[in-house]
Design a protein around this nucleic acid. Sequence first.
RNA 1: GGGGACGUAGUUCAGUUGGUUAGAACGCCGGCCUGUCACGCCGGAGGCCGCGGGUUCAAGUCCCGUCGUUCCCGCCA
Length: 592
Amino acid sequence: MTYRTEHCGDFNEGQIGTDAIASGWTARRRDHGGLVFIDLRDRSGMVQLVIDPEHAPAALEVAQAIRVESVIRATGKVVARAPETVNANLSTGAIEILVDTLEELAPSDPLPFQLDDEGVDEALRIRHRALDLRRDVMRETQYVRTMTTRLIRRYLEDRGFWELETPILTKSTPEGARDFVVPARLEPGSVYALPQSPQLFKQLFMMGGYERYYQIARCFRDEAQRADRQLEFTQLDLEMSFVTRDEILELTEGLYCALWQEILGVELPRPFPRITHAEAMLRFGSDKPDLRYGLEIADVSALVANSGFSVFKGAVEKGGAVRALSCPGAAALSRRELDELAEFAKEWGGQGLAYLLLDPSGEIRSPIAKFLSEDELAGIVAATGAQPGDAVFLAADSPAVVVRVLGALRPHLAARYELADPKAWAMLFVVDFPLFGYDENEGRWVAEHHMFTAPRAEDEDRIESDPGSVLSEAYDFVVNGSEIASGSLRINRPELQERVFRTVGFSDEEAEDRFGFLLRALRFGAPPHGGIAPGIDRTVMLLVGTESIRDVIAFPKIAGGFDPLTDAPSPATPEQWRDLGLVVPPPKKQDA
RNA sequence: GGGGACGUAGUUCAGUUGGUUAGAACGCCGGCCUGUCACGCCGGAGGCCGCGGGUUCAAGUCCCGUCGUUCCCGCCA
């Protein structure tokens, strides 16, 4: 007995006249009373079975009783289709299998949803994920995923990287995301944490002298989920010793060119642009700008510093900024739409949004035009590159608020006017991030990237005196406005690491308690090293063109971290609570 | 934690200014059908309109609450 002489999608004209055995799922059945057609599907594709009552009466009875998605096995012969019955939409459409025997290996119940239905409730799809995974789009996505990791491994192995493992049960660390915590049975009251990333372990590999490490690593962060964020996700984590920033960026660039070339057949132009964080914030209002469209922000503060419009003049006098961007075609916006944009600006912390509408004739319509001189108007138009038919939007406030408002407005307008070419790829590296940011809530400095990121050598002496001015060796890889990877050169001297710990408010005791294992290792000679960690899920999202991370994860969680497939998380038993030395908390809420 | 949208048959949806017995398509069940490929034709079953409360002579429809899903803000070194 054998289940198949060929996979469904691999039957071909060269096999006409040969015996065939095929197994798979009943994708569709077309019953003509006498004659029955079955589309038989497996991972490779589909082939049509024909059950002819005169040829195989027993098989006909089986065929007529089979429900869709049942698993069956057919024996027969590969035969050519009559020319008028060839199906050009099917790779196997020139042939079919004339069935001798048909056997139902495992029947299917009626389905909870149809596999070809669009927009089926996601919780239902995930609850029946084994069914959902049979859909072509899901299978293709998971195949892109396997191609991605396969190519990553080949690319990095070819360049001397070792694939090394790091612990899943590890130490809870301060800063960063909320840890997932695992109670330690053998040490009641103590916990392990699941890694937010293998960051420190990969650094220890470098200190161990292993030069080049990578891992397709699962990472865990107990934070709110988003369309592109999942409680557990997968990173390509890599680290290199005796390496410069540009060598890491070039490696990343080469990897993504190889991925796009091999999976999409797209040749990405090299090198990928590199802009500084400061420039990105100024020109695009974002540290992950989408460069598929313009809408570039222009600073017109100097132009309007003495204007008759008090809002502009006042903002500049108070040390603020007036910045503007022009949007193609937006001069036709209605009053209501303009009001909505002003409302949008307020939601992002602005006072409102000033605008100039450039009529097709070139004439400027604007409530604030009467406060501005001809020169000022012309200067704004020139600075933003606005053309007749465009609208110029202006925000005046503190620089931080202006960046925030226009940074939000830019993608908002791009979406509204469909300015991003859906087939375009805009890769870039953002470099020179600040080392520290000031946390207003906590009233202290915090690491912008993480605490192990090296400051630029030329800024090192200002760590204590002016932390906000210190730039770091951190960088991001951004594609189409989405942060795909983040990395940095790391600190490799213990005294520098201690200075950074102190700056973010750690006493020496706390630092030793939390990161003693790192400091201990640093004291025995750490090589200069650095790395980067591209998100595998987000990379696959780009490759298959989806907006939802749940589409690229085989078994994802939905809102609230709930898994409709397994119903996890589920209550622990009293025995489990007792073993862990924990008190049973009251239930959070009753079911509706 | 906050805001927006959504919740009607197994699935995807419609349901008028509140007004007879809540509809369609697909699926399911039964029947017919020998060249279909989203096969076709005939018939049938299937509804706590998410849940609770309120307004009203009358609620799928209006109001409040709640639960769930989703997108966003906060958060995500």
